[in-house]
Amino acid sequence: MSWADLFSRQVYRNIIIDNLQYCIANKGLIIYAYVIMSNHVHLLVQSNSGQLSNTIRDFKSYTSKKFIQCIEQNKESRSEWLLNVFKQAASMHKRNSHYQVWTHENHAVHVYSDKFVMQKLDYIHMNPARAGLVRQPEDYIYSSACNYAGETAVLPEVEVLTLSVISVK
């Protein structure tokens, strides 16, 4: 499946942010780190309900429907191309009937040590800098890097990890 630069538009980033906020408020999602790039999202999360897999499934299902609805109803200059990309991706999987926006894999990894957590935080936060979008990770507003730099961040709400929190979780 080719990745589409869907999140290069504010309207689609807002769908992600709004639904992450919903998952925090209603599904027990805890976000420790995130970055929204133009064509993918990285999350370091936990569920205090013990249903992380279900929460991610619901998040992907809901946001997919909202993206398609938005593409079809708004004046999206790339609507035909985007819908074709998502239709082609769906045709490769028996589980999809019309469109596939997200990959089926979550690439979930069990975070088992402070060192591993720090590697994941660095990887997530450095994504925009590695892509040449910013010099410093905290300068990218669709990332939790600013939370870790002590700056005011945009939503979604982030629980900043400290070594003592990492050890307990």
Rank of each mutant, 00 (worst) to 15 (best):
R13Y: 03
L161T: 14
I17F: 06
H104I: 12
S97T: 10
P137N: 05
Y123T: 04
P128F: 01
I24N: 08
R78E: 13
A131V: 00
V134A: 02
N39Y: 03
E105M: 05
V158I: 07
Y99S: 05
L43H: 12
L121W: 07
R95T: 04
S167I: 01
I24E: 11
F116W: 06
N48I: 13
Q51I: 01
N19A: 00
V117Q: 05
R13W: 02
S167E: 15
A4T: 07
I17A: 07
E105G: 07
G150Q: 04
I30V: 15
Y140V: 04
I31T: 06
C23R: 08
L83G: 05
N84Y: 07
S113K: 03
V41H: 06
V109S: 03
Y62I: 11
V101E: 08
F116M: 13
V101L: 12
T162G: 03
V109D: 01
N54K: 10
S91Y: 10
I141D: 09
H104N: 12
N127C: 00
L52D: 02
I30A: 00
I30K: 14
F7N: 07
Y148F: 12
S53D: 08
V101T: 10
I15P: 04
C70T: 13
N14P: 01
E159H: 08
K115V: 06
N14C: 01
E151Y: 11
I166L: 12
V109A: 02
D139H: 11
A89W: 06
L163P: 15
T152H: 10
